[in-house]
Design a protein around this nucleic acid. Structure first.
Lengths: 116, 116
DNA sequence: TGTGCTACTATAAAATTTGTAAGTAATGCC
DNA sequence: GGCATTACTTACAAATTTTATAGTAGCACA
């Protein structure tokens, strides 16, 4: 009897999350590999192939998707060098650098409290 | 997590995440409604029906799932009163209370840096 | 007898995320 | 021409998360 919904509750509800600063923050960090990438780039900027080698268990597609999302959200700066073969460097933005001490606290919290 | 193929890449990769304290922390906070629930319970303990009323846009099932996961991860304490109709109260654990200042920082970070 | 209440369960469908495999452009080198 | 390289892209499939809908127990109350 009921027809197909023309609007997705999933998408509508996403707005609730994006409107709140806290849920927004966790939202843009929630991709499966984003924090590991962030942590790696804390040390130095790296090119795509270096990250790929570092995280050999992450599929190339996923690496691309996560990097794109992070760039879109202002966490990473992407620099393309017009060479052949291409070279692309990724580095943290100021915004991401400001985030790192908070993530350190989170990490400490988890270490102290998580169930073994 | 019943009926999960433990040999899948998805599951194998999940171990990488759970092994790291930081990714673990974000992992247990990543459910769609967990942070909103956490934020609400910061004020006072609440019963299921109160949360349900507060978050009218969250399906009852989702509310249950998120609460169960948070209890499982040690973020919430669940108290059942043997009455009819049943009464169940949810409140933050010490672990969750320790988390709140970190989440405040995260929220401030997002407010300052997010793209408008 | 029947209805209402609360805090869930059960089942299925919708939507998204993640993974696999293959292909692309542009150039240099043989 | 054929091959190699890099940073992707595309098509497809698998797995998970989220939403929708209905149903349950146990007792009070009419």
């Amino acid at each position: 009897m009921p027809g197909r919904k023309t609007t997705s509750t999933f998408t509508r509800n996403e707005q609730c999350i994006i409107n709140c600063n806290l849920t927004y923050a966790v939202h843009i960090l929630s991709g499966r590999w984003k924090l590991l990438i962030l942590d790696k780039l804390k040390q130095r900027q790296m090119r795509f192939s270096e990250l790929k080698k570092e995280f050999s268990y992450i599929s190339e597609r996923m690496l691309t998707l996560q990097l794109q999302a992070m760039e879109e959200d202002g966490l990473l700066k992407r620099t393309v060098y017009p060479e052949v073969p291409p070279r692309v460097e990724y580095e943290l933005t100021e915004m991401a650098i400001e985030l790192t001490p908070i993530l350190d606290h989170l990490s400490q919290w988890a270490e102290k409290n998580r169930k073994k």
